[in-house]
Amino acid sequence: MSDYSAASRSAGPGAGAAEEASATGGVRLPSAAAAVQAAPVPVEGAGVRERRKALPGWAHGWIVPLLVLAAWELGSALGLVSESALPAPSRIAQAFWSLVASGELARHIGASFVRAGGGFLLGGATGLLLGLFTGLGKWVERTLDPTVQMLRTVPLLAVIPLFILWFGVGEFSKILLISLGAFFPVYFHTFLGVRSADRKLHEVTKALEFSALQQATKLILPSALPNVLLGIRLSVGVSWLLLAVAEMMGASSGIGYLIQDARVYSQTDIVFVGIGLFALVGKLSDSGVRLLEKRWLGWRSSYKG
């Protein structure tokens, strides 16, 4: 009763205080009494602002996925989405744990890693070497680059049938397909990087009597490194993409096979587990390259990580 009357009595000045407070950003409040009255509007605003600041930077990226997951789980629980098309996150998690427990998941991931890693190493190393050669020598560039440019325009997926005819559907053709895809980004960016070496610094190395080897290791390689790492990052992405393709075209293990096999038996939850795994390993390998960038390119003032 007394509360009610107090509120009604101060309704006028309270509203005024609220306006005043919001005009000054809700930071300064005219008086303690007004603060109680004006509490609902400006203080809540300040609270949200503080919470936003309190949230660490890395957590921001998780807001949207977590909201989507919550809505998804809720939708499944209420029967709004079909269980066979979009199984609940909790069911996907269950499927994940049972695959982990049976050891099957480790087997698939292992197989995929060998293929993607092998293909990436083979293609990346070839791309790096050829990129260095074509970058260093005009003659090599004139000889090799047109051919490479031509091959690049062929859609990789179009050569799969040829690979199957030549090498069957075994490991070799899978690794070869991945290495072919991993080759191009590293090749082009290494070439670009070598060519981006500063002409003025080149003059300095001549004046300081650098040997040919010193020029390569102390000028050209460091100059090319940012581009090379970019090429490697792109190439890692292509490797995972082609891994999925290769494993779906015929395999008995690997994440791609896991997905394909689950599709045949309409195990949508396992399909989701596979997709999630691809997302995870893709992100992890990308972060790995970024870590190298941070360590090796720390001298760049423009480096924004």
């Binding site: 003025k200 610094l201 003059e203 300095v204 001549k206 004046a207 300081l208 009597e209």
Partner: peptide, 14 residues
């Protein structure tokens, strides 16, 4: 040709 017996300082530090 260029050589270390002739030190060169350019307009930019290089």
């Amino acid at each position: 040709g260029p050589g270390i017996d002739k030190g060169v300082i350019f307009q930019e530090p290089r």
